[in-house]
Amino acid sequence: MFDLANPEKFFALSRRLIPVMAALAVILFAAGLWYGLVASPADYQQGDSVRIMYVHVPAAWMALFCYTMMAVSSAAGFIWKHPLADISAKAAAPVGLVFTGLALGTGMIWGKPIWNTWWAWDARLTSVLVLFFLYAGYLALWEAIEDKARAAKLCAIMCIIGFINVPIIKFSVDWWYSLHQPASVFRAGGPSIDPSMLTPLFLMALAYQFLFFALLLIAIRNEWMRRRIARLERLEMRVMSELVAP
């Protein structure tokens, strides 16, 4: 990981990794969607609407994963001053925001036929909504501060403090009585979902994961380029002003 502090090495590696990740994401999406929408059985209670799960649940996992990654990156930037750490935290934020929005949106669509309501103020829905606002606040703070080095440090503080919200989301199911079904995949004693539904779920989860890494790497490269351009423009301004008024 510390080897990648050298941006040239990171660029060389990411140039090769992005197409691989993107291709894997496409293949897994195709397989997961086919398996989920066609090959897997409908639920005996929920009918075909259970298939929303294959889009919804991985999005919600990614919403949490992405924020965790941002917090780890922020901490790494804080402790080791790794030059790519704060960039990767920033690059992950918009992706995480979209995953969170997707989890909320598909959850609402799923809730309508099953719970007969678009929205229920249940613990998990509410905490994912809070997570959405955490992402939004993080991005707003980043945009508001001109000096990017300073923005990185201040955003890192907010991100790490906000990270205490992530375990609250994960365990809110147990803390509060809720409409949402209790954890049924990651729990002691093995998953309670049937394997015919678990397979497409994990295929989709992997697809989301690879999509996230591909987007993350692209966003990191873009941000790095953006900073380099900003640096060059400042340099150009200085040179120009010296030429005009020596």
């Binding site: 509410t126 905490s127 809070v130 606040g137 508001a144 907010m158 403090i161 906000g162 919200n165």
Partner: peptide, 26 residues
Amino acid sequence: LGAAVTASLKRAGVLASLLVAPFYTP
């Protein structure tokens, strides 16, 4: 905390509220 994070910004009132409000949930 919200005030400290936005202390270097001009007119940060709304932004600070935006940052702070999610932490008020519990």
